[in-house]
C-alpha cells in the first residue's frame, strides 16, 4: 500500500508545471555537477563551487537591486565565469593557494552582495530563496537557458574527457608532453561556473557545492577507475536529486537541504559498504577478479 501511495504522490507531484521545470533543470544540473565534481575534488578544488556561488549571489543581488531585467541568470553567468577565470589566475600565480583564493573571492563577494541587499530591498523572501534554494525559482526562460547550458557542459565534458583525466591526474606530465593544460583548466573552470549558476537558484548558494562534492566522494568509496567513478557519480547524483526533490515536495522542506541530506545518506551507505567489504574480505571476492571488479 505504501508503494501505491508513493506512486500516486509522484503522479500528483508531476502535475505541477513548476515541479516539471525544476526536475528537468535539476536533473541536468546534478549530472553536470557530478561529472565535473570528480575532477574538482581530485584537484583539491572542492570548495570552488561554494566560492563561485557566492559570486553568483552577489551578482543576483545586484541584478535585482538595479532591476536588470527579469532573467537574472543572464547577469550572473558572465560575472561568475569571470570570477572562475580570476580564481584560476590567482591560484596559478602561486602566491595565493587555491583554498585561500576561493576564500578571498567567496567572502568578498558575499560582503558585496549583503551590502547591496541591505541598502536596497532588505532581507526578504527572494534573498532567502537565493541563499537556500527554492522549487519555485525557475521561470520558463530560465528553464530553456538552463537546458541549453547543461547540454553544452555535458557535450564539452565528453569531448574533453581524456584531456580532463590527464590534466587532473598529472598536470606536469600533460604539460610536458605538449598538452595545453592552461586551456583545459580554463575549460574546467568555465564549465564549473556555468553549472554553479544554473544550479544555485534551485539548491541555494549555501548548498550548491554539495552537488559537486558528494557524488564524487560517494562513488570513490567503491569505484576504482576514473571512468567508473565518473559514471557512478552521475548516477548517484541523479538518484539522490530525484529522491531529494520528492521528499522536499512531500514534507514541504527546502529542496536544496533535502537533496543534501539524501546525498549524505548515500555517502554513509557507500562508506559502510566499502568498510564492511574490506573488513570481511568480501570485497576482494565480489569485486576482486570477477567481472564486476573489472568494471568497477
Amino acid at each position: 500500500m505504501m508503494d501505491f501511495w508513493f506512486f500516486s504522490d509522484l503522479v500528483r507531484m508531476f502535475e505541477y508545471p513548476f515541479i516539471q521545470r525544476t526536475v528537468i533543470v535539476g536533473a541536468l544540473v546534478s549530472l553536470c555537477a557530478a561529472l565535473l565534481g570528480v575532477s574538482l575534488v581530485l584537484k583539491r578544488y572542492a570548495m570552488i563551487g561554494s566560492g563561485l556561488s557566492n559570486v553568483g549571489f552577489a551578482s543576483l543581488a545586484m541584478a535585482s537591486a538595479f532591476n536588470l531585467g527579469k532573467t537574472p541568470l543572464r547577469v550572473a553567468i558572465p560575472v561568475v565565469v569571470l570570477a572562475a577565470f580570476l580564481l584560476l589566475r590567482i591560484s596559478e600565480s602561486s602566491k595565493i593557494k587555491g583554498d585561500s583564493a576561493v576564500a578571498l573571492i567567496s567572502t568578498s563577494s558575499l560582503a558585496i552582495g549583503s551590502i547591496v541587499i541591505a541598502s536596497t530591498t532588505g532581507m526578504n523572501t527572494d534573498v532567502c530563496n537565493y541563499l537556500f534554494g527554492s522549487l519555485l525559482a525557475m521561470s520558463m526562460e530560465d528553464v530553456w537557458l538552463s537546458i541549453s547550458l547543461s547540454v553544452v557542459v555535458i557535450t564539452l565534458f565528453v569531448v574533453f574527457y581524456n584531456k580532463i583525466f590527464a590534466v587532473t591526474f598529472d598536470e606536469t606530465f600533460a604539460a610536458a608532453t605538449g598538452s595545453k593544460t592552461g586551456i583545459y583548466n580554463m575549460i574546467i573552470a568555465f564549465l564549473t561556473a556555468i553549472t554553479i549558476v544554473v544550479g544555485m537558484r534551485l539548491m541555494g548558494t549555501m548548498l550548491i557545492s554539495s552537488l559537486v562534492v558528494f557524488p564524487a566522494l560517494t562513488s570513490m568509496r567503491l569505484c576504482k577507475k576514473f571512468s567508473t567513478v565518473t559514471i557512478c557519480s552521475a548516477v548517484v547524483s541523479f538518484v539522490c536529486f530525484f529522491i531529494g526533490i520528492v521528499l522536499s515536495f512531500r514534507h514541504d522542506i527546502p529542496a536544496g537541504a533535502s537533496i543534501v541530506i539524501v546525498d549524505v545518506a548515500a555517502f554513509i551507505i557507500f562508506s559502510a559498504v566499502s568498510m564492511v567489504g574490506v573488513a570481511t574480505g568480501l570485497y576482494k571476492k565480489v569485486f576482486g577478479k570477477q567481472k564486476l571488479g573489472r568494471f568497477l
Binding site: F165, A166, F169, F173, K225, F226, S227
Partner: peptide, 18 residues
Amino acid sequence: VSKDFPASVFEVVLSGRL
C-alpha cells in the same frame, strides 16, 4: 594528488598517448 587517485593502471598508461 596522483597518490590517491582512483584510476586503473590501463587508464594511467593510456593517458601517455594524449
